[in-house]
Design a protein around this nucleic acid. Structure first.
Lengths: 248, 248
DNA sequence: AGAATAGTGTCTCTTAGACACTATTAT
DNA sequence: ATAATAGTGTCTAAGAGACACTATTCT
């Protein structure tokens, strides 16, 4: 790690006006997947050492931006994600940023929150890796059952709100599935994310009309009637539908 | 957090030296209004002094978070807004954050972008205030005609994309109008923001069905047939419609 | 045959788009 | 009367919800 020349006066503080102390800058990642029949979020346990804030509490994976290593905020989020899961190309979206004098006892801090959606299958790698201080927690309502460190309950709530919002009118939940899936599995994922059931015919019509799915011509053997397998067509982002799912 | 066992005693306390140098932290505000028949954005001219980045270029209003004055990021955005316009309670929404090693020549920096929507009328105050280094620029397509400092063209583009997106399915553009307005004026604002015309009957049906408007029982005298005046009903946020406006 | 899941047919309801029509003002 | 803008009536099309129906597999 090369050491940048630090003793040089800060050009910003040298620029005249009041001295602007710099806030702490972190990135936190809300990593979601479908596991064991529910939507789950990856948490890390904070170190037990004295002097650490929230020792032993569960928290979102994240940490300080490393200006020597991270080219930009998204690269920092991808680094955190890869460190915890081994996954390097998930669906990744920025949720927003939170900054205040009080959210971190160590001082004025801002965090940049990203949400990543992973298929469960890609996680086989990670399970062998580290560590007892990592766990998946099922999402219940707007968050998880245990208290979280810092304002992470708020950050998680915002990420879930974003994901649920987009689930109403985009193809987003498809990124929680492996590359080949059936329409039944896709509908099940939508229902898990939204926490309510959807009408089968309307769901299928919408998904097939969206033009985002490619029929793989293969079938999934499930023990009952086999279902057609689809995959997401090659395309940059999400498909947006012009109508939301409606109430109930 | 990064690695549990870091050889440095406390990375935060060490934040002045090589390990976790803190990025610069700024807030930029995209201030939009309807003026002279078009959507316009407020720009400030960067100082001409040598040593300043982008001297003389136009830029979004913004600047460093002042950890001594700003309670949180939104308070910082409101402060910047009030400094430039005198307005203190606009529609204000966070667009996102941008951070990288290269976006500011002075070093690794992050900015937090907010968008504010103002009725033109509230700006009478500001016109008397300062200053020759402030101007309104008409929005053309994804941005403005002149080049902007830093990556502000990208930030402005993202804010416009957000505003246009929400214009398709929320009551957002109403915040660009004074508190009393006619449906014709409201439709005109939607059309200016979207850059395309909307069908009158469909527009009126949607707005009135949304339940967000309150009939003031008064009429606006325009020289032709007077139109009913409405105002936004008291409510926290936006009204979301379950369908987008559709193409053309 | 019965269970279970995959997939379709078809009706109703809501709302956008199109567009012609009426209503109210000023000149 | 004419121009101009405000506001309505009404038809069509698309797609969501409801729900019953058929289809294909297993035991």
């Amino acid at each position: 790690m090369t050491k940048p020349s630090e003793p040089i006066p800060d050009p910003v503080e040298a620029a005249g006006d009041a001295v602007f102390r710099r806030p702490l800058t972190t990135v936190d990642v809300v990593i979601l997947t479908i596991r064991a029949g529910s939507l789950q979020v990856l948490l890390v346990q904070r170190p037990q050492q004295a002097g650490e804030p929230f020792p032993g509490r569960w928290a979102l994976p994240g940490g300080f931006v490393d200006v020597a290593r991270d080219r930009d905020l998204q690269a920092c989020a991808l680094r955190k994600l890869a460190e915890k899961t081994g996954v390097d190309s998930p669906y990744l979206e920025q949720v927003g940023s939170w900054g205040s004098a009080t959210r971190d006892p160590r001082g004025w801090s801002t965090t940049h929150v990203y949400v990543a959606l992973l298929p469960d299958e890609t996680l086989a790698l990670q399970k062998g890796g580290n560590a007892a201080d990592l766990r998946w927690a099922p999402v219940e309502g707007e968050g998880v059952a245990m208290p979280l460190a810092f304002d992470h309950a708020v950050l998680l709530g915002a990420a879930l709100h974003r994901v649920r919002g987009k689930t109403e009118y985009t193809s987003l939940p498809a990124h929680l599935l492996p590359s080949a899936f059936t329409l039944g599995e896709l509908q099940h994922v939508y229902e898990l994310v939204l926490g309510r059931s959807l009408e089968k015919k309307a769901f299928r019509t919408r998904m097939l009309a969206g033009g985002m799915l490619e029929d793989l011509g293969a079938q999934k053997e499930t023990g009952r009637r086999p279902a057609l397998l689809y995959r997401l067509r090659e395309q940059a982002g999400l498909v947006y539908f012009t109508r939301s799912f409606e109430q109930r």
